[in-house]
Structures are given as C-alpha cells and as structure tokens.
Design a protein around this nucleic acid. Structure first.
Ligand SMILES: [Mn+2]
Ligand SMILES: [Mn+2]
Ligand SMILES: [Zn+2]
Ligand SMILES: [Zn+2]
Lengths: 132, 132
DNA sequence: GTCTACAGTTAGACATATTCTCAGTGCGTA
DNA sequence: TACGCACTGAGAATATGTCTAACTGTAGAC
C-alpha cells in the first residue's frame, strides 16, 4: 500500500506534519467526517493543529482531488475520501452517512431531461440502518 | 383557487398578517428560497417583519405540512412548497435549484439494500441548465 | 367595560460553521 | 547570513439559525 507521504506527493501537495496528520485520518475515514470532527480526532496526535489549518488542508485536498465534499447533512459539509461516483444513505435517527456503491442502484431517465445538461448525479436515501 | 387564508385555516395555522405575507410568497415560490431570501422579499410588503418571525413561520409551515426543507445547497436549507416526492437539479454555475418530476426518473435497486430500511429517497442532479 | 391569559412578534443575544486577516515560524537558496 | 516564501495559528469577521425576554394585541372571564 502507498504511504500517506506518497499519496500527497502524487497529488503535488507539499507534505507538512499537519497535512500528513490530517491525511492519515481523513483518507482512511469511513464516517464522512465534518471539518470539526477531523479537527477533534487529529488534534489528539497533533495538539497544536489549528482550526484554520484543518479547513485550509481539507479544502486543498478537495482541490487536488483527494477528497470530495458531500451536501447531505443539515448545517455542515462532510468530507469523503471516496472520490468515485457513489450514492449515500443517511440514517435519520443518528445522522450517520453511509456509502451505497454506484452499481447498487440504477437511475434511468436523466438523459431524457431536455432542460438540463446533467454532468453527474447521485441518489440520496434516508431511513433506518438495519443492525447487522 | 383557494386563498392563502383558506390554506392556513385548512392546516390549522392561526392567520396573522405576518404568516399571510410569508405564505403568499413562499407557497407560490418556484426558486427554492432560503429563509433570508424569504425575509428579503416579504419585507418589501411587510417592513416590520423580523428575522425571528420568518424562521418561526417557515418552521411552523414545515411542521404543518405546507412546506418541506431540502438539503441541496451548501451552507443553507432551502424551503420547497412542493411537498410531494420529487427530484432536484442544481445548476452548478448559478446555484439555482430546479424541480425534476418524480415520474421523470426511475431508481431501481433500493429495495435490495439489505443494510438499509429506505423510507424515502431522491436523485440530486448537477450540471448546466439549458437555456430554453 | 375592565382584567387577564396567552399566542404572536420583535430586537438582540447566542451558538455554530466557515472564511479571513495578519503576524509569526521555518526552511531552501543566493 | 539574509531573504523569500509557503505554511501555520490566534482571533476577528461573516453567515445561518436558534433562543431569550420584553412587548403587543386580542379573546374570554368577570
Ligand atoms: Mn486521487
Ligand atoms: Mn397541504
Ligand atoms: Zn461517500
Ligand atoms: Zn423542489
């Protein structure tokens, strides 16, 4: 597996201790964390990390293609290391956001919308996660 | 057509001048306005209207089933007088949100997701609106 | 006809998410 | 060594939304 350092270099991001710490956490996250959740977690290992640096770093990672942002929760953006197309399920009781693979759902009709030139889309599902 | 006054009464909402003014605007809106956009518009006819009353009124209308909220724009909720199920298209250049009729798209596969008890869903499309 | 209860409204304070400003830090290079 | 420059960090600023507490207007009790 590639190290976090290699990943940053491949995306032309100068590796600093703060960026490495943020990347170690957020690129492995499966919880769709908010910026403040990233800050809270990464600060445990990097206590001087400022909120501004977290936002700067996350926005940089988005520009460089390492992360995407998702507008699925009220009041805050979430960050997603899964940059390929996929869908999302939101548990209405907990607010947690889960990935739904692209192949799991099929959407038909989008190319027939004459008023809209659709560049991308996703399905947002809401309900209760089943205990597994 | 039913008057706004009748609509409020049918939904068991005591009609005040402020509520009537907000309802007149937001129930006819096709732009998915934010709370502050509602405030800016309605204040033209009702200059003493406060921001608190706009939020109180919009949230009341949502509880009473006159409006829904949609999480489709970064940083703010939008209000939607279209309470039935439908999809949304976001113009990435302007940020404007357009309705896509429920029947225009078909989503298959949701009932096969064993981890999730899906209560509702919608497709969010992004791209460029074609000039018509 | 007053009194009173109470829902509704208001201005401003508060909470939270995100961006901005600007001074400080550290490192590569002349 | 000195400079330049990207990066970092503290706090201010901005924006959305909620809360508080005082005020208003009206419907019913007396
Ligand atoms: Mn990549
Ligand atoms: Mn209705
Ligand atoms: Zn995701
Ligand atoms: Zn809509």
């Amino acid at each position: 597996m590639a190290t976090t350092l290699d990943t940053l270099r491949r995306h032309h991001i100068a590796p600093t201790p703060q960026r490495l710490a943020v990347a170690d956490y957020v690129l492995a996250a499966r919880t769709h964390p908010t910026a403040d959740e990233v800050w809270a977690q990464v600060r445990k290992r990097c206590p001087t990390l400022s909120r501004a640096t977290v936002y700067n770093t996350l926005n940089l990672f988005v520009r460089k293609g390492l992360l995407t942002t998702q507008v699925v929760k009220e009041g805050t953006l979430v960050f997603d290391p899964h940059v390929g197309a996929h869908h999302h399920f939101v548990d209405v009781r907990t607010g947690k956001v889960y990935d739904v693979p692209w192949e799991a759902l099929t959407v038909s009709g989008a190319q027939a919308l004459r008023d809209f030139d659709v560049r991308d889309y996703q399905v947002i599902l809401r309900g209760h996660k089943r205990r597994t």
